[in-house]
């Protein structure tokens, strides 16, 4: 009991005192996840909408692929991106490995299928009257799809937030591509993995508590959006 409660109170102290290691890991986590989700939104939302509203041969295959990619293991993404951006890889000249940019690349790849899939689901579940209504009021095909997106804004925001929840909590990509560099690419998750291994439970627990707080906020947001 003593061990656990001591650890817990030390963890709370670390949070309350804005311990620089904690603050750094939290801001790196959030910064990288936000950049990733920004890019994933720019790619995933249009992809989900296009697949949702158009008919084309192979559509079912594309949907199945998107579903499969949703479960993409983070370490596989880490491995693939590592091979591409390492100095020996095709994009080696850019010197991206072990930088936050590398983590953004990996996490963007992780988030795109999630954002696209949830967007697709929202589009498929949309009121079938939306597009005809826009068309008969004089909207062009693109304008009617824009209106569709506008009507589905809460569902699409939920898709984006679900993607954020995934990347902020993942550890594989952050560890492999970021290298867990203190104050630079060390995120909440990589720090937890490392600190626990080193026996620094208090720091790990402090970060774990914050991470759970972030997850809680994300889910709260999702709940609110899904009720609208």
């Amino acid at each position: 009991m003593g061990f656990l409660s001591d650890t817990f109170s030390t963890a709370l102290d670390l949070i309350a005192s804005f311990d620089p290691d904690v603050v750094n890991a939290v801001s790196t986590s959030l910064g990288v996840a936000l950049w990733s989700i920004l890019f994933a939104t720019l790619a995933g939302v249009p992809a989900g909408v296009v697949v949702g509203v158009t008919e084309f041969p192979g559509k079912r295959a594309v949907i199945t692929l998107l579903n499969t990619l949703m479960a993409l293991p983070t370490v596989v993404v880490g491995l693939a991106v590592y091979g591409i951006i390492s100095r020996q890889g095709p994009l080696g000249e850019l010197g991206l490995l072990f930088t936050p940019k590398a983590m953004v690349i990996g996490q963007t790849i992780l988030a795109i299928p999630i954002v696209a899939n949830y967007t697709l689901g929202t589009v498929k579940g949309a009121d079938p009257r939306i597009v005809p209504t826009a068309l008969t009021l004089g909207a062009g095909p693109l304008q009617s799809i824009r209106q569709l997106v506008q009507e589905l804004r809460f569902g699409i925001m939920a898709a984006v937030i679900a993607g954020f929840g995934r990347v902020v909590a993942e550890v594989g990509v952050a560890m492999m591509l970021g290298g867990n560099i203190r104050g630079y690419t060390r995120t909440m998750t990589t720090a937890i993995a490392m600190e626990t291994g080193k026996g620094e439970f208090a720091l790990g627990l402090a970060l774990g508590l914050i991470l759970m707080g972030v997850a809680l906020l994300v889910n709260l947001f999702l709940n609110i959006l899904q009720q609208r």
Partner: peptide, 19 residues
């Protein structure tokens, strides 16, 4: 579109601050 755009701007602002 306004609220969606607002959310985007907020995200971008946060991202820029964080990095």
């Amino acid at each position: 579109m306004k609220s969606l755009r607002g959310a985007f701007l907020a995200i971008i602002a946060l991202v820029v601050l964080c990095s």
